[in-house]
């Protein structure tokens, strides 16, 4: 199930002027794994995720991405492309954009950041496909309809704009758009933030199902330990920009070692 490493963060740090975003973070993300970054507001989770996702140049350290396996057997006359490359230092801007478009996907907390609100649901899901050269209208439309059904939105909403959708539907649409380009790694920043508990539960269910159905590799930011418990294989607890503890989800949540993790776990609401 869990495959080889796809993404490595090496002593990653980001400063905003005098302020610290995150510092000295080293992590490995393996294929098929769901990693949750937890911590309180302002602990640097989102900064770390943006740096790791190739959207925010870090001040220190490296983000290393493993090159996908070549389709054809390698030609021994040519040098194989390097297995690991730094997303910021080694890739050119067009290469990084292609990576973000075709290999990685990002799900924002606010669906308005990840969707085109004035474009129909079908256009939103179809955009990543058109970006990689799909030029048959009917095929794009059929695929968009399939994705809409997969995220449990009625197919007759295909031509409606997300501005008329509920918060939960928008978030599901954003996930459909992110997954339509068949990414290898998905980054999610508080995907269930701002939704009420029953909608949140359905969405978590959906994400869990999609993760197992497509064998997705996910890096997830959340402040909600229950979300982490439900989705993540591994957890990294962040405080003041640094990782204070990381390990298997059940291990960290049931037997936290670091004093801050203990505080975080004990302050979670119990019903």
């Amino acid at each position: 199930m869990i495959g080889p490493p796809l993404l490595r963060l090496d002593a990653l740090g980001k400063r905003y002027g005098r302020h610290l975003g995150c510092a000295d973070v080293s992590l490995t993300l393996r294929q098929g794994e769901v990693l949750a970054l937890v911590g309180e507001s302002g602990s640097g989770k989102s900064t770390l995720l943006a740096c790791a996702a190739g959207r925010l140049a870090p001040s220190d350290g490296r983000v290393l991405r493993r090159a996908p396996a070549p389709d054809a057997p390698e030609d021994p006359r040519h040098d194989a492309p390097p297995l690991w490359s730094d997303v910021y230092a080694d890739l050119t801007e067009p290469e990084r954009r292609r990576l973000l478009r075709e290999e990685w996907a990002f799900v924002h907390q606010d669906p308005r950041d990840g969707l085109r609100m004035a474009v129909s649901a079908g256009g939103n899901i179809g955009e990543p496909m058109m970006a990689v050269g799909a030029r048959r209208y009917q095929a794009i439309r059929a695929e968009a309809e399939r994705w809409l059904r997969r995220v449990e939105i009625p197919a007759d909403r295909l031509d409606d704009r997300p501005s008329g959708f509920s918060g939960g539907m928008r978030q599901r649409l954003q996930i459909a758009r992110a997954l339509a380009s068949r990414p290898r790694v998905v980054f999610m920043d508080e995907p269930t933030g701002g939704l009420d508990v029953s909608v949140q539960a359905r969405l978590l269910d959906l994400i869990k199902r999609l993760v197992s159905e497509f064998g997705l590799t996910v890096a997830l930011v959340t402040h909600d330990l229950a979300v982490a418990r439900l989705l993540a294989h591994r957890i990294a607890v962040m405080r003041r920009g640094r990782i204070v503890e990381s390990g298997l989800t059940d291990q960290v949540l049931d037997d936290p070692q670091d004093p801050y993790s203990q505080l975080l776990v004990s302050s979670a609401l119990q019903l």
């Binding site: 801007e93 478009r101 129909s120 079908g122 955009e127 058109m130 295909l158």
Partner: peptide, 22 residues
Amino acid sequence: SKMHALEDYGPMHVKLYEDIAR
């Protein structure tokens, strides 16, 4: 201007897609 520089023209077809859908 970046999109022009990088020939990142995928979104252009979204406009045409919207036309046909509507």
